[in-house]
Design a binder for these strands. Structure first.
Lengths: 203, 203
DNA sequence: GACCAAATATGACCGCAGTCATAAATGACC
DNA sequence: GGTCATTTATGACTGCGGTCATATTTGGTC
C-alpha cells in the first residue's frame, strides 16, 4: 500500500472513530463537522472529501451493523432445527444485538431514513440499500422454502409475500421498540408476532 | 372571534397554503422559509411564531391526512360484513387514498421520522403521535374482537399482538411502496399479506 | 534532485434554518 | 381617544452544513 493510500485509510478511520465517539457523547445533531475535523486533526473541507454529507456517516455505521446481522443469519441457516425456531432464533438474536445499543440504533434508523429520501433516484446508496433489503428477504425465503420441503409450512404459500410479512413484523417491532421510552422487550414482542404469522388468526 | 385571533388564523392558513403549494412544486428541501414568508407576505421571524421549525409544518399536513383516515375507519366499522373483509377494505381504502399523492406522503412519512426523533421526550408532538398510533391499533382491535364474537377469528388470539401485526403489515407495505420507483400496487400487496395474517403459514 | 501531473488538503465563503432584541399592533380600561 | 400591558411582527444576526478555488503533497520519470 502506497503512502498515499495509507494516509487516506488513516484519515478515513480517524474521522470514523472520532465521529462515532462524539455522536455517542453528545448526539448527532449536537456534534458539528467542525468539531469532528478539529478532533481528527484535519481541515473542515477534508471531511467532505471522505463523506459527502454529515449524515452519510450514519450509512457507514449502519453497514457495519448489517454485516454482523448477515453473519448471524448464515449461522442460523446451517443449524438443524424446526424452521420456525430457526427464524425466531435468528430474529431474536438480531433483536438482542440491537438491544445493546438502542441510542445509536435510533440515530442510524431514523436519520438514515431522511438520507434515503433526499438522495436522488440513481444514487448507489439507494440501490445498495435495496439490495440489502432484498438479500434479507431472500434469506428469509430460503428458511421458508426449507420449511415447505420439511412439511412445516403450507404448500400453497407465496414465499415472497410471506417473507415480506416476516420482515414487516420484524421492522415494526423494531420501530415500536425504538419509539418506546420504557425498556419493553423487543425480542419478546417480535416472538409473539412470529407465532401469529405461523398460526394465523382465522378459524 | 377578535380581530387579533382572526388575523392569527389568517396568517397561519396563508403559511399553510403557500408552503403546501411550494413543497409540491419544488420539493421540501428546495423550498426555503424565506420563500414561504415572502410569498405569504410576512417577515421571516413571523413564520417561527407559528411553526417551531420548517419540518414541523409536515406534522400539520400529516394530521390533516390522518383525520381523514380515521373517518374512513369509522365508516367501515359500522358496515355489516365479514371482519376480514372489513379490515381489508379499510386498509385498502387507506392505501388508495395514499396512492393519490405519493410524493407528499413520502415527505410526510420520512421527513416526519426525523422530527419525531429529534423532539425531546416530553414533547406533546411525540405523545400525540403515540396516541394516534394507539387509536389506530385499538380500532383494529375492535374489528378483531367483533371477529372473535362472530366466530371468524380464533378465540385464543392476543388481540393486541394481532392488531399490531396487522399494523406492521400495513406500515411495511406502505414503506416498500414509498421506496419503489415503479408504481407497484400498494393495496394489492397489502391485501395478500392480510391473507397471511388470517390464514397463517404453518401447517 | 528537478520537474510534472494527479491526488489530496485547505479554509474563506455561501445559503439557509432558526434566534432574539426591538418595534408595531391590539384590546382592555378609564 | 388617551394610556398601558400583552400579544404579535420584524429583520439583522448567528451557527452550521456544504462548496470551491487555491495550495500542498505524492509518486512517477528523467
Amino acid at each position: 500500500m502506497s503512502l498515499r493510500e495509507k494516509k487516506k485509510q488513516d484519515t478515513r478511520n480517524r474521522i470514523f472513530e472520532v465521529s462515532g465517539k462524539l455522536f455517542k457523547d453528545k448526539g448527532f445533531e449536537n456534534t458539528t463537522v467542525d468539531e469532528i475535523t478539529k478532533e481528527a486533526g484535519i481541515a473542515k473541507g477534508t471531511f467532505f472529501n471522505y463523506f459527502p454529507t454529515k449524515e452519510s456517516l450514519l450509512c457507514y455505521f449502519k453497514e457495519h451493523k448489517e454485516a454482523f446481522i448477515f453473519s448471524i443469519m448464515e449461522n442460523q441457516m446451517s443449524l438443524n432445527a424446526p424452521v420456525k425456531e430457526k427464524i425466531k432464533n435468528f430474529l431474536v438474536l438480531v433483536a438482542e444485538y440491537y438491544e445493546k445499543d438502542k441510542e445509536l440504533l435510533k440515530l442510524l434508523f431514523f436519520e438514515h431514513k431522511r438520507l434515503i429520501m433526499s438522495s436522488d433516484q440513481q444514487s448507489t446508496e439507494k440501490k445498495q440499500r435495496h439490495q440489502r433489503q432484498e438479500r434479507f428477504i431472500n434469506m428469509l425465503s430460503v428458511f421458508l422454502r426449507e420449511g415447505v420441503d420439511k412439511g412445516e409450512i403450507k404448500k400453497g404459500i407465496d414465499l415472497k409475500i410471506a417473507s415480506e410479512s416476516l420482515n414487516a413484523i420484524y421492522f415494526h417491532s423494531l420501530i415500536i421498540w425504538l419509539h418506546s421510552d420504557t425498556d419493553s422487550s423487543f425480542s419478546r414482542d417480535m416472538s409473539a408476532k412470529i407465532d401469529i404469522i405461523f398460526e394465523g388468526i382465522g378459524v
